[in-house]
Amino acid sequence: MPPELSGEAARKATAEFEREQRRREAERRKEEAARQKERARRDKLVTKAQAALDKAQREHDRKTLTCDEVPRSTARRSAA
């Protein structure tokens, strides 16, 4: 069995325990904030990349439609 603590020693131990709990909680909040910031940064990059991909797809579709509108015979004559 552990030795009995005096009142003052128990108060000091309790205070130290509570300080350590507060420190750990503050560290946890800090880490969570950093994770959220990183998540937001990644989401912004994904959105930007998706917008660029969508734009490139629209441009490709536009060019493909333009090429399909030109009759093949006209394209052959102009190439000759």
Rank of each mutant, 00 (worst) to 15 (best):
A79T: 05
R39A: 13
M1L: 11
E4W: 03
A15F: 10
T66M: 14
R41P: 00
R41S: 08
K12L: 14
Q21W: 07
Q50I: 08
R24E: 15
L45C: 07
D61A: 14
R76N: 10
R19E: 14
M1V: 03
D61M: 06
L65S: 06
A79D: 07
R72Y: 12
S73R: 13
E16G: 04
F17K: 12
P2S: 13
T47K: 14
V46M: 06
Q36C: 03
D61C: 00
Q50A: 10
G7E: 15
T47D: 14
H60R: 12
D54R: 10
R39C: 00
E18M: 08
E38S: 05
R39I: 09
R42H: 06
K55F: 08
A40R: 13
A56C: 07
T47P: 00
D68V: 02
R77G: 00
K63H: 07
A15M: 08
E16L: 13
G7C: 06
V70L: 14
E59Y: 00
R11W: 05
E59D: 15
T47Y: 02
Q57D: 11
E27C: 01
E38R: 15
A75I: 03
A40E: 15
A40W: 09
E4T: 06
D43G: 03
E32T: 01
R19H: 07
E20F: 01
Q50S: 06
E69W: 12
D43T: 04
R22M: 11
R72I: 11
A51Y: 03
R41T: 06
R72N: 02
D68Y: 09
P2R: 06
R23S: 10
K37T: 08
T66C: 00
E20V: 10
S6C: 10
K30S: 12
V46N: 07
Q36G: 03
A49Y: 07
D61V: 03
Q36S: 02
T64Y: 09
A10E: 10
D54K: 07
L65P: 00
E31L: 13
D54E: 15
R24W: 05
Q21N: 09
R19M: 05
E69S: 12
R35W: 10
E32C: 00
E16N: 07
A75Q: 09
D43S: 06
R42S: 01
E25W: 09
M1C: 04
L65C: 04
T14R: 15
E8C: 01
A80P: 01
R76W: 11
D61E: 15
A33S: 07
K55R: 12
R23D: 12
F17M: 10
S78V: 13
R39P: 01
P71E: 13
D43P: 05
A33N: 04
K12W: 06
A75N: 07
R11T: 01
K48T: 04
K63I: 02
E25F: 08
K48N: 03
D43C: 01
R77W: 09
L5C: 02
Q57L: 13
A33K: 14
K37V: 08
E32P: 00
E31N: 07
K12H: 06
A49G: 01
A79L: 14
R42P: 00
